[in-house]
Design a binder for these strands. Sequence first.
DNA 1: CGACGAGTTGAATGACGTCAAACACAGTGG
DNA 2: CCACTGTGTTTGACGTCATTCAACTCGTCG
Lengths: 253, 253
Amino acid sequence: MNAETASIIVARPPRLPQVSRATFVSAATASIRWGDLLGPPVLSRADCEALDELARQRSVAAGQPVFLHGEPSRTLVALLAGDVAMGLATAGGPMRTERLVHGPAWLDASSAWLDRPYVLDAVALTPAQVADLPRAPLQALLDQRPLLAQRLLVSMAGEVRRLTVHAHELMHKDAPARLATWLCERCQPGNGAPNHAIVRLAERKSDIASQLGMTPETMSRLMRTLSDQRVIEVEGYTVQVLDLQALRRLGGA
Amino acid sequence: MNAETASIIVARPPRLPQVSRATFVSAATASIRWGDLLGPPVLSRADCEALDELARQRSVAAGQPVFLHGEPSRTLVALLAGDVAMGLATAGGPMRTERLVHGPAWLDASSAWLDRPYVLDAVALTPAQVADLPRAPLQALLDQRPLLAQRLLVSMAGEVRRLTVHAHELMHKDAPARLATWLCERCQPGNGAPNHAIVRLAERKSDIASQLGMTPETMSRLMRTLSDQRVIEVEGYTVQVLDLQALRRLGGA
DNA sequence: CGACGAGTTGAATGACGTCAAACACAGTGG
DNA sequence: CCACTGTGTTTGACGTCATTCAACTCGTCG
């Protein structure tokens, strides 16, 4: 998984994950990996081809919007490759990232069904390859291919679950707990010790903070407190989790 | 709509909407109003009957759980009639209501698709009539009736949108703004004046506060501040909005 | 009448955001 | 090689908003 990631996002220098600028996405329409969007049980060749025919691909340069809040939504939007930040642009200032999407994944599979405008802005952080699926023909396709409809349903169910948990945590967990659970979720097995793990930060810390609903300053302070408590050890964009158990405890508020 | 509501929830006394206890739900399986669950364009008679055949109805007494977090989810759960609070029970204490669902509406149409346990607890506030749709046969049904799949997809899309907005507001709006937008959303045309409206509170104030992610105390204080500013006027469970424009401004933080 | 639950109000604490300064580091141009 | 700049992070001081704890009111019910 990490190897694949590296092929899409340019390897970030050990310290300083500012917007990566290299990242070559083959300019021509690449073949779309629908399986990554619609879940594990592999899709039939025919299903994929039908979707391919519907999808309109476009490239978005780094820094450019994929869509903006308020725009009417007529298509489902999938991110094939690249990174896109979703949030709401503040007057004048930069965008407050509420979520960072890493292709391949859905950017917005719901607004189009409701004939309502987008709720959030989406801007590309890296050059991005995007596929638009117009609603009407997709609907016709789903009528013929029930398996596709199932898959889409399951994808949306996952989104509902993710958002439910997220809203719950924002309501009832304080900042330390949110950070702790976030770290736990990204733990990768460390040096073999059962209570040890590693987290590599692939985004700017301020973006992570923004997604966790706190300011960069608070996040920095929380990291320091955790370090002082010998629960983690931070060096640049690598976090060594020294006491995974304690970290989980902190997250379970 | 209000007349209908009154027929389902017992008319709450003007002051004190504690858990209503009367509410007669016909004990036998009532005919299900699928249109209310799956959106406006009316369903065909055949579709409805097919769903009726699948659905397993059950009654839940007030105070009893409809489902609990952690339980494996094998069915989609719809609330046909009654009120159900969703949230997470705290150790010992009562439940922190994160959302109050008023039938007919979906309680959980997503967990079953993912074969994962429920995320939240759901307990009936009034006697409730619930329908369970087992996943496997429903899936088979959707394969035969694409229209139903579409409708379900649209319902879930609405849920995604609702949750997205909710998460956004929790992150970036402070308590006064959240209360203001909540009030705006429930405004009913008042005495004709363009800047005037009425909001009738159908739940305990502490439940409303809980759904807005604040404590009852803060909510009470915020209501008082708004009254002092002559933006609203509170009398028991009836809120007169005196300056709708100002209220909207307060909500748009 | 007394008990209870819901709501209100006040005072005190604390968590988190804001503002500002210092720091670290990469890239740039001399 | 070295200043110089720009961006991102860290740290400190400070203010504010929201929670907590507690007392008190009001209406209902036994």
